[in-house]
């Protein structure tokens, strides 16, 4: 039976929302292809046991088994330098057909390098279509004008992917079996430094992605929009929208390609529309 592994990134001692989302997707895939779902839990200390502990939560969200690796250096931050060797160790013990990472900053740091270590195919934030036991990964390329598709059954290598989606409801009643593996020693060559000046002003999560083609808008307006949860994207800048964000295109020409990449569109000079939108978002936030 094939193995589907999911990296269970922790946030404040609990599996992150994105990790649970990836786990739910892994459960859906594994049920279709007849695979076992392993959640890889790499942490600094043994997790608490109880009704709401990390292992119980992973079991309720679809893990058949939880691979537990503990070592003092496996705290924050999540980097390949800190957590990668533990994930690789899990893959060596239980070679995966598919390995999912949450599409977080940490997951996006660890996943590509683990893929390279495994010689795996790699996809970032694909749409996952399942038909029978066929799994096809599709992701937008060229700003959403085209899609690149990869059928998992066509390759004989493992596939590593990052996943972004809403965390589903708990789907399983049973407890996940715990498999304890020895974590490799963590000797990171990368160290965290304190940020001068204390905590930074929080930036709200992105709620709106605004595609404006090759237009330019003033920096102060861009910063104002960012503080209101709107991210402005011009041509040539790679972008990805969180699953909860709305993509909006703004251009003067209704035939402009940006309107093929967005859910909603507004016609007008981008700078003028952005100015009015900043006002509307500020009013809504007040």
């Amino acid at each position: 039976m094939a193995n589907v592994l999911v990296y269970a990134e922790l946030a404040e001692g609990r599996p992150s929302t994105l990790a649970l989302a990836a786990l739910g997707e892994a459960r859906r895939i594994a049920s279709a292809i007849g695979a076992t779902v392993y959640a890889v839990l790499a942490c600094a200390e043994l997790p608490r046991y109880g009704d709401d502990d990390a292992i119980a939560l992973l079991g309720r969200h679809g893990a058949d088994k939880v691979i537990l690796l503990t070592a003092p250096g496996l705290g924050r931050p999540t980097l390949f330098a800190t957590h990668g060797p533990a994930v690789v160790a899990a893959c060596e013990q239980l070679p995966p057909a598919l390995l999912l990472f949450p599409s977080s900053v940490g997951g996006s740091d660890v996943a590509p390098r683990v893929a390279a270590r495994l010689g795996a195919a790699f996809a970032a934030r694909p749409r996952i279509d399942i038909s029978g036991d066929n799994v096809v990964l599709s992701r937008p390329v060229h700003g959403g004008v085209c899609e690149r598709r990869l059928a998992i059954e066509d390759i004989e290598r493992p596939v590593v992917l990052t996943y972004d989606g809403p965390a589903g409801e708990p789907c399983c009643d049973g407890d996940a079996e715990v498999v304890v593996l020895t974590a490799p020693p963590v000797q990171p060559a990368i160290h965290e430094l304190p940020l001068e000046g204390g905590a930074q002003a929080p930036v709200p999560p992105v709620r709106v992605v605004l595609l404006i083609g090759r237009a330019a808008i003033p920096d102060p307006l861009e910063r104002r929009l960012r503080a209101l949860g709107a991210r402005v994207v011009v041509d040539g800048v790679p972008w990805e929208a969180p699953h909860s964000a709305v993509v909006v295109a703004v251009q003067t020409d209704p035939e402009h390609p940006v309107f093929q990449q967005a859910r909603f569109g507004l016609l007008g000079e981008p700078a003028d529309v952005m100015e009015r939108l900043a006002g509307a978002l500020a009013d809504a936030a007040a």
């Binding site: 066509d154 909603f264 569109g265 978002l281």
Partner: peptide, 30 residues
């Protein structure tokens, strides 16, 4: 063999909204 294939699927166009106020309303609803 591991790169996959690029296709250009038909894509729905964005729903053009009449003004910013309508967009703000849609964002609240979403």
């Amino acid at each position: 063999r591991f790169e996959g294939t690029v296709i250009a699927p038909p894509r729905p166009r964005a729903e053009i909204l009449p003004d910013v106020a309508t967009l703000a309303q849609k964002l609240r609803e979403s």
